[in-house]
Design a protein around this nucleic acid. Structure first.
Lengths: 133, 133
DNA sequence: CTTGACCCTGTAGTATAGTACAGTGATTAG
DNA sequence: CTAATCACTGTACTATACTACAGGGTCAAG
């Protein structure tokens, strides 16, 4: 069972060394055994775990939520429904954020359209809209 | 020319007192004159300025960007085109963020759909997707 | 004249996700 | 054997936008 130094793990997982120590501190990964000199000795599956974290982040999960997912993952009593529920909540959250951004976007779009290039700032419909009583 | 205390301004603008002091520190509003006792004495247009900031925030501008907008606003040489350019950049930024969220959302949607409720966590397609080599 | 509401400064904490040192010790290649 | 690289801890800093004190002083109503 060979072990990896933190630098090797970081390289293979595509994250920074500091990030790994940060994740250990945040309890997303287990504190690994140490060598006589105090060096962290990672089992190979740590690379997979870090990739799991990276992918979950890409799906929009926060580190806090990912920690929950990892805990669920390692619990044999966890059902697919438990995970699905989290994913659906995150999906709802994403849809809400899209909705908010679309609202912002269309409001801004209206103002941009109303704005003709060669007026002074005093006549600018964007600034006027922002300055309204 | 009557002046307002920070509490009055906060009440009328719909923001917290601490927020106003924070905005002063961040140079979004001018340091107002002080009374003999050191109390801030705001001109009435500070309320409008705070509402401007609030509305710009609702449109997705950061405080840093709002500071720029306010500087532009008070510069007589500013043209509508200057403002429009900022608004268009922000709009592009919002569209990008929507795009990113939609990508996340559809990836997650696929996984949620693949997930049937009564499997164990080991068989969960969501966890499997995250744990892939 | 007292009491409560208000205001002051300055610092520190919240949440998110790291990143960047400083200062020191260990390991490895030549 | 020595130099370069790597690892260690701990603290502080980045960005964003506040929020929460502590420990004072001030103002207005009764």
């Amino acid at each position: 069972m060979k072990s990896l130094t933190i630098g090797k793990v970081a390289g293979q997982a595509g994250v920074g060394i500091e990030t790994i120590r940060f994740y250990e501190h945040r309890e997303l990964i287990e504190p690994p055994p140490r060598s006589a000199a105090g060096y962290r000795q990672y089992p190979e599956n740590t690379v997979q775990r870090l990739r799991f974290i990276r992918r979950a982040k890409e799906l929009g999960f926060s580190l806090k939520e990912i920690k929950e997912l990892l805990t669920l993952q390692s619990n044999p009593k966890t059902t697919c429904a438990d995970i699905k529920q989290r994913a659906e909540m995150k999906l709802a959250d994403i849809h809400q954020r899209i909705h908010d951004l679309e609202k912002m976007g269309s409001a801004l779009e209206t103002l941009v359209t109303a704005c003709s290039a060669d007026a002074t700032s005093a006549e600018c419909p964007i600034l006027q809209a922002l300055a309204e009583e």
